[in-house]
Design a protein around this nucleic acid. Structure first.
Length: 115
RNA sequence: CAAGCCGGAAAAGCAACCGCUCUUGAAUAAUAAAAUCUUCGGGGGAGGAAAGUCCGAACACCCAGUCCCGAUCCCGAGCGUAAGCGAGGGAGAGGGAUUAAAAGCAAAGGGUAAUUCCCUUUAUCCGCGAGGAAGAGAUGCGAACAGUGACGGCCAAACCGAGAGGCGAGGCAUCCCAAUCCCGAGCGCAAGCGAAGGAAAGGGAGUAUUCCCAUGGCAACAUGGGAGUGAAACGGCUAAAUUCUUGCUCGGGUGCAAGGUUAAACAUCCCGCCCAAGGCGGGGUGAAAAGUAAACCGCUUGAGGCCGCGGAGUAAUUCGCGGUCCAGAUAAAUGGUUGCUCAUUUUCGCUGAAUCCGGCGAAAAGGACAGAAUUCGGCUUAUUGCCGGCUUGGGCU
RNA sequence: GCCUCUGUAGCUUAACGGACAAAGCGCCGGUCUUCGGAACCGGCGAUGGGGGUUCGAUUCCCUCCAGAGGCG
């Protein structure tokens, strides 16, 4: 689970982030982000019933995405809100594949620190 | 060994690293004190179905008609110098009673906060069996098709009513066809024929035209009694979760997104400061923004659960004592990753007489259904392997 | 999350518990026409799945499935 400061909670903020312009994606994952005025990056995760009709499977996808983001947090730039949307097929992947996918998508959206 | 029936408990384990939530203790910072922030430590953290939302309740709010009580408030004849008292009238938070509609009625008895749930007994039905299923107030308007023919025919004292008519003791009959039989008015010298009436093997249509015993009778059958149902009577008894009539019971509705508390920004007015446009700070306003955004409470201690002991009861259940507080999240915590072990599956090898079985070894795969959302009691559905008891069948001794 | 509602031919709607489940549009075939349309005639085609009550179920009851809606 992410620390509370890195969670994106309010519905209005999520809608703002989904309308944002920093867009990245791959076949298994989509990313929408918008800049905020805070010194942290905030995330939320969307897994629809189309991905899997079973609630337990959806919860597992969300937990793995959160773990992948938490692992990548030191390399992530601050100052934006990000929504990660799972696409069909992600349920069949293991943790390492999800990590690779998350890193690829974040790099395409330009959210990785340029050090 | 195979196929079944009933019941029970469980819901893979261990370690390492990295995290989340609730609660609690300490320290530090700030403060009048606290809320709060950070760090460290202790403790708790999904289910038997958390699911479907099919029943039932708790809890919260809202709403009808009639009647009663009613804190409090208003008017007030009159009395009094006055303060005040005050018949009577009106409003009325709230409390109680009742119910028109809607809804309900589940064998008998019991349990429960309550139920279509659970328990005991049981008519009946299903199964070879272990066992399982099972009952919907009363009445009976109406009831397709088939069939010559189907919830009921015919007569009727007494009583009520001006009458039409109502009610109805009691009597007769009891689906249709039917070989044949009984009876025998009458006809005939006789053999015999034989109306009406009665019974009937068997057959027919249909979901459906009660069952048993005793006595009498050549027999058909009659009479009486009984079983189950029913309070009883009675020529009663095929029968439905809808409809109609009727009896009894019962206020209704919405659901924690119920409901409650606090309450901005912006607007506008005043004051102060900054050279000014304008900005900053403080205070106020209400009929508008707004009782809105948002936050908090409800929110987890409850008709509790679990463990132990004892009592009542066939049982469901219940009573007493002691111990234990056993999830409270909110784009939604209770986890993520790695390694090992165990259950399981597949493949290969060895072994023995052994492609099928057992043992040993190796490799690979790899956890059933499924995620609390106000709370609880049931039901139903999904689903993994295990344990105990029992039944039927087969084989061996 | 809480609470409701609806499933009938390809589509839109009917059907007191009673005969082969009705109608319109559509589809197929035919007649007519040089061809097509219109018109006329005929045909195909359905009660979401399973169970119960009943002699008999689209209808009543239970259950599963699918779809839709309301509530800050």
């Amino acid at each position: 689970m992410l620390p509370p400061a890195n969670r994106l909670k309010k519905e209005k903020e999520i809608k703002r982030a989904r309308a944002g312009k920093m867009i990245g994606g791959s076949g298994l994952l989509a990313c929408r982000a918008a800049a905020n005025d805070l010194p942290v990056a905030r995330f939320c995760f969307i897994v629809s019933k189309k991905i899997s009709p079973k609630a337990t499977a959806r919860n597992k996808i969300k937990r793995r995405l959160r773990a992948a983001i938490a692992a990548a947090m030191p390399r992530i730039a601050s100052g934006f809100d990000c929504v990660l949307i799972a696409r069909f097929g992600l349920a069949a992947k293991n943790y390492q594949e999800i990590c690779d996918c998350v890193n690829l998508v974040l790099a395409r959206a330009g959210l990785i620190k340029s050090s």
